[in-house]
Structures are given as structure tokens and as C-alpha cells.
Design a protein around this nucleic acid. Structure first.
Lengths: 228, 228
DNA sequence: GCTTACTAACTATCCAGTTAGTTTGACCAA
DNA sequence: TTGGTCAAACTAACTGGATAGTTAGTAAGC
């Protein structure tokens, strides 16, 4: 028999969506399998029919989310163009991916706090694709002489962290709006994207940002923070 | 009778430390009261003797952490000086606070993902002090003509998010180092602080970053979030 | 008649919070 | 100095309500 599809997709799809919402809002431990099943309007045993365990369901969701982001940024790079334009699109692609799977930012923040306890190699592989793509864009920009030398990891954090923070913090901002100073206007997504684009490119344009140090230390880690 | 102090502080202090570590690593739901008690080397009932509940303990920890940050940035502002120097110190103060209470970043990331479910007014009040301080620094810089106009909230996110991300992600980076591209060198804290300082100041120096919007918006996507 | 999709009801464990006490030391009165 | 009183500090053992995962069986299409 083929999946019995009811309104809002097959039971498997509803399960996936319900689980993403639950995991994002409550975290792995706070999420309850019964509640996920109820939200998806299926019997709990069906969850174990489609997925091996709560943990496997969680991993499948994360893998899919990271896969989407990795695919989006890879497409950006493959499309080519000047490095600075690519970088702008890279940043936008990540913001759009966060918008497309609205539970991604919260799950990602939690997973970081968790020390990656629920990640497996295949998920990390997708993450790796993202940072490798950024590395390539930065490298091309450097070759072309439009970017200064930077540590791709620092750059990555400077891009991803604000975008994830902003998306994931929507509920908390809404919840405590009445306790915040009135002049604090909640920004729109485009404002944040524009800010990240501006700051990142500014850091890349100005050589010297992370360089100064090269001469000032002789010890431990490679003298420069650095590019390839 | 006065608190029986054993090595590593009073039982209440050990409790506080053990709970912070547990909550940061496992989240509110994942944290187990029995485990906290065991780590603190006390009987579980003692936890309920010192704190009203698991939730109250959690809140006390968060309140203390935010209070420390708020105090540090307030001191930065009170010390005065040119706005750009204040901003640099503001950023550094936050990074140092994160270093001083190493469980803070993880708890903060989780709380955002959680929608602030465990926050109360007094905690939000401390958070407010931080953003108000930033608002004052930005205002002074604007008055002095060295900063362009920006949304303080976007600026705040651009500062706090990378710092928290970086601190909280230490375990996950360590854990999956072997699966990451070799040229990705893990940055040091100072590199990240320097990057955040550089990017934030660059955005403030260049007037135009977040300005366009007031005049140019007629359709929902601002003309320049954007590509190319 | 075989596989896929589905269900109600169960089990075994875990865990926040409680209870009914015991121990410890500070202070004081005889 | 001794012994009594009190409150703070502490404990072992329990309770009741979740909750992840299982089981044994049913329906429905191919």
C-alpha cells in the first residue's frame, strides 16, 4: 500500500513538520514524542514505523535542513560572478534558507549549545560544504585582489551568527517587546541581511582587520589568522 | 548554624556552579536535578532547601549572568571617552563576561531558541540595561558626528551573536575538528573580538548602511538587501 | 497472501518534588 | 562547664505522573 495521504501531506510529511516545530521550540529533551505524534495527527507507533527513534527523527530533520543550506550556497558559488557579489548572495542565501525552514535557526542554536551531541558525520558533511564554499569565495576574492586576508571561520561566524540570532529570536522579541525601550525598533530581515553584507564586506575590503598580529607573536598557532 | 563550607565553597555555591554547567550542557529539560545535586556533592533535597524549584534555580543563574554583563557594559559607558573607544570596550566587555562565566553563551543561545520561556521581568530588565547602554554609546557617537545612523538592535545583534556563537561553539568545533577542512584554523577569542570591533565600527563609519530605508521603501523588499 | 499503513494498550524506567526525620553548631542559662 | 534549646544544614527513601519505546493485532491495496 502506498502512503495514505490526508490533507496537509502524507503522514510522514506531517510527522516531519510537526517534529521540526516541536524540536525547535522545546529542544531534543524537551520535545515529547507523544506531542509530536498528536500534532501530526498520527498514532505514536507510526512515528516508530517511519523513524527508528526520536534521535533518528531529529537527525533526519537536521540533515535535511543543512542539506538545503549547503545546496543553496553551492548554487551561489557555481553561478559565479565577482567575489563580492557572490558573497552578498551567499549571505542572502543563508538568510533565505532560514526563512524557508523557520525552525532551522532555533535547532541550530540549540545544537551548538549542546556540543553537537545529536550530529552525525553526514550532517557535519553538509556543514562542511557551507564553509568550504565560503572559503572558495574568499579565495577567489583574494586572488582577484578585492579581498584582504581573513580567517574564513571568523568570517563565517560573523555572517551566520547574526542571521541565526535574528531569526531565532523573533519569539523572544515579540514576547518581551513591552519591556524593551520604545526606541528599539525591531528590524526587518532585509535590514539584518544588509547589515551583515555591509559589515562583512567592509572587513574584507580593509586589509589589516585581522592581520596586525602577524608580527606580534611568535608562539603557538600559525602566525596569521588566516586564509589558506 | 552557618553554612557548612567544604572544599570548593559552600554547598549553595557548589550547587550554583554545578547547575550552571548542567543547564548549559543539557538545557532546562535535559538537565536533571539528581545530576546537579550529585555534581555539587549534596543531597537532592538540599537543592530544594536552597532554591524553590528547578526553574527558580535556573532563573537565578541567568539573572546573575545577565546582571554581570549589564554591570560590565554600564561601567564601560560610565568611564566615558570617545564613542568609538567606548564601543570597542563595550564589545570587549561582553566577550570578557562570556569568558568569565563560560556557561553563559550556551544558556543564552538556548533561551533564545526557547522563546524566553524561563525568563522573568527582572532578567529582561538586565538585558535591557545592555541594549540601552549600547543605545547611549551610539547616540553619543552620532552627536559627535563620528557614527552614522543605525538601528541599535541590528548593531547589538551584530555584536552579541558572533561573540556568543564563538564561545558556545567551542565544544562542537573540538568534537568535529577531524571532519573539517584542514585549512580552517580555529580562531582565538581576540581574533573574533577584533573582527567584531572592526566590522561594527566599519558599519557605523560608513553612513548609508542602514539608512536607505526611511526614504526608499515603497514595496516590501528594500532596494538593497541585496545581491550583486 | 504479502507488504505497507495503521491502532490501542501496555511496560519499564525515569525524575521533579516531598516527607519525615537526623545532625550540627551557636547561643545561653544555671 | 554543662546541658538545653533552636534553627540551619543535611539525609534516605518515597510518590506520582510522565514518557520512550513495544507489542500484538487490524485494514487495505496490489
Amino acid at each position: 500500500m502506498v502512503s495514505r495521504s490526508t490533507p496537509n501531506g502524507t503522514s510522514r510529511e506531517r510527522l516531519f513538520a510537526a517534529a521540526a516545530a516541536e524540536f525547535a521550540a522545546k529542544g531534543f529533551d524537551g520535545a515529547k514524542v507523544d506531542r509530536i505524534a498528536a500534532r501530526a495527527r498520527i498514532n505514536k507507533a507510526m512515528l516508530y514505523y517511519h523513524f527508528h527513534s526520536k534521535a533518528a527523527l531529529y537527525r533526519d530533520i537536521l540533515r535535511q535542513m543543512f542539506g538545503t543550506v549547503a545546496g543553496a550556497v553551492t548554487a551561489v558559488h557555481e553561478q559565479g560572478g565577482p567575489a563580492d557579489a557572490q558573497l552578498r548572495r551567499f549571505i542572502e542565501a543563508i538568510a533565505l534558507a532560514a526563512e524557508g525552514s523557520p525552525h532551522f535557526p532555533a535547532m541550530w542554536l540549540r545544537e551548538i549549545a549542546e556540543g553537537g551531541r545529536h550530529l552525525d558525520e553526514s550532517i557535519v558533511h553538509e556543514m562542511r560544504r557551507v564553509i568550504e564554499t565560503l572559503g572558495r569565495i574568499l579565495h577567489e576574492g583574494r586572488q582577484a585582489g578585492i579581498f584582504g586576508p581573513v580567517n574564513p571561520f571568523v568570517t563565517q561566524i560573523g555572517i551566520v551568527a547574526p542571521l541565526m540570532f535574528f531569526s531565532a529570536s523573533a519569539p523572544i522579541r515579540e514576547r518581551f517587546r513591552h519591556l524593551m525601550p520604545t526606541q528599539v525598533v525591531t528590524p526587518r530581515r532585509e535590514d539584518v541581511v544588509a547589515h551583515v553584507q555591509a559589515t562583512t564586506l567592509a572587513a574584507l575590503a580593509s586589509p589589516g582587520t585581522q592581520r596586525a598580529r602577524a608580527s606580534s607573536r611568535s608562539s603557538r598557532r600559525s602566525a596569521r589568522a588566516v586564509p589558506t
